[in-house]
Design a protein around this nucleic acid. Structure first.
Lengths: 345, 345
DNA sequence: GTGAAAGCGCTAACAT
DNA sequence: ATGTTAGCGCTTTCAC
């Protein structure tokens, strides 16, 4: 009932030649008689021969699989990264094995181990917010398996990295609010110890300093899960301050949406009473009312760049050549929409 | 520099036993001396042995890989399906290889072939809107590789399927608008020949008929790419009708968002002048203003169900047992938000 | 120019 | 209870 896939042996048998000859013909090996080659190619085509990657890879001791650790699949920013990764991987003959950490360190460690067991040739990872110990990744490096970190990276590991310029993006977002006339700008920040959250905080502070505005710790709110609800809570707290802000810069669009919902419920008009800006440029930001200003992070580009770098390192490693790690910083782009656009005067 | 992964041979050598013994100890084979077993287990742990799946799979002639064809990765509905698929796959020891068809038939055919070459044990597919020829899938069936279709399915193939009850969801959405007092309800429909688009159209028509409302072809608009812009265009056309509708039911939320944008620009108030409802329940629908009523499609459940069914068929096939194909219809759920909620009276 | 044989890491008869 | 052998499909010496 279930027909077996065609193997080299099948072709060899039908042609009365050896398996080796068929193999050589198929991979365009030089020392082969043209007629033989042609006969093989023709029969292979006719029998719909497909090389068995498991056998090939076992032989070469490689899998042609790239592991991708991603915090959340259902998330515009991350799914656009996946898209970029897949595009390059497919183009280069690699397949992608995706695992979702859900921002959970234990799960990350388990899945990273699973990918190692699956013999991935390289790993792309944005680590969970809760990750502080990188021993599970060091294990890869000890085995000579390259890692490229993207988005959430750490200085603790000597690997190549792809990040966006969080500091610059954050600086621009804050400065934009200042230019719009805001003088008390709150920042709802990301989790402590997470690099890009820290950089965004720095960019925010430096923009204030540049414009001789005070950095008021009262106006800096923390998040932990970085979600809608935390944006809402932080906003309520900010509104109940004796001297509330006139602008809010949220660490990510989702949080900014929570901000906007609470403002709407509180009858505060955006942008005139309160200017709002987010970070990431999710699709949803463009369709809410008022459309949310934000900082665009080039998700697909991050995915493409990281994958290109990783495959490059994989190939260098296979050729026993030395690799030089590098950190690529991609530019963000300020996207001004109505939520921060004050009328002139 | 690059240390080789530990193999059974390494363990056997260190322990002075044969490879077979080590293999047996590791897989809990009965006929083995407790001391031997313990020694093996201990050393394997110490040496951080990980079985090479390529070797095991080559032996068993299976890959433990599930192929997943998905129209678009960056799409809330589809990424939640991916999440469901990954959850079950990981739980069952399978890995997922994802390919994106981008609604392009040629790309779908190519990628389906690539997955076949990668020797996937089974295939999950939502076919592209443009797919009418299913020979590339029949090839799987001929090879005894199970397929489960989800979301976009066809009657042309004898395989298991997972769909949502588009007809019922559509009927409910339309009836809801009628109950809210709409008497001229437009439908912006999905592409011709695509099954779920046709079913939604039927549900719409039948709801009108049930309530003795005429089906006016003028009020049925087509889409091809099913995007924001088409929703906007269709709305403009509907508004310029001599007798415009008082409710719009769009085939999917994205289209409904285009509808809402155009209505806002035209100064038409939602829901009172025009009630709007979409389909799919994207995350974005809950955060727009007014929040968009819609029909929830359980994406994660679709992914989980389809994967469970597929793995089941894979295992039955491996055990040479017969499989019975079935079609699972998951219920949709009407989500009423402000875009369709008319004031009483 | 082509065949024979070894081996990638593992499992499963078949021996002992 | 353990070792020996063969083989999964493929590539790559080494012969001839």
């Amino acid at each position: 009932m279930k027909q077996q896939p065609v193997t080299l042996k099948d072709i060899a048998a039908k042609l009365g030649v050896s398996v080796a000859t068929v193999s050589r013909a198929l991979r365009g090996y030089p020392d082969i008689r043209p007629e033989t080659k042609e006969a093989v190619l023709e029969l292979a085509e006719e029998m719909r021969y497909r090389p068995n990657p498991l056998a090939m890879n076992l032989r070469k001791n490689q899998s042609n699989i790239i592991g991708l650790m991603i915090p959340e699949v259902v998330h515009h920013f991350f799914s656009s990264i996946i898209e970029g990764v897949m595009e390059i991987a497919e183009e280069q003959g690699y397949t992608v094995m995706i695992c979702q950490s859900n921002e959970d360190f234990e799960r990350e460690r388990r899945d990273v181990g699973m990918l190692l067991s699956a013999r991935v040739d390289g790993l792309l990872i944005s680590h969970a917010n809760s990750t502080t110990d990188f021993a599970h990744l060091q294990e890869y490096l000890d085995l000579g398996i390259p890692i490229v970190m993207y988005d959430k990276v750490t200085d603790d590991l000597d690997v190549s990295k792809v990040v966006v310029d969080d500091y610059q993006g954050s600086f621009q977002a804050t400065e934009h609010l200042i230019v719009q006339g805001c003088t008390r700008i709150a920042h709802i920040r990301g989790p402590q110890g997470v690099k890009n959250a820290e950089e965004r905080l720095e960019g925010y502070k430096d923009a204030l300093l540049k414009h001789h505005l005070p950095v008021d710790e009262e106006l800096i709110k923390n998040t932990y899960r970085v979600d809608l609800a935390e944006g809402a809570t932080a906003t309520s707290e900010l509104l109940s301050l004796p001297h509330p802000p006139d602008g809010i810069y949220a660490v990510t669009d989702l949080v900014a949406l929570g901000v906007m919902q609470t403002l709407r419920e509180s009858g505060i008009s955006v942008p005139n009473q309160m200017a709002v800006i987010g970070f990431s440029n999710w699709f949803v930001s463009s369709v809410v009312d008022p459309p949310l200003s934000t900082v665009h992070q080039p998700g697909t580009e991050i995915g493409k760049t990281a994958t290109t770098m990783l495959i490059n390192e994989i190939r260098l490693g296979q050729a026993d050549q030395s690799v030089v790690h590098e950190t690529r910083v991609l530019n963000t782009r300020l996207v001004v929409r109505d939520s921060s656009k004050r009328k002139r005067g």
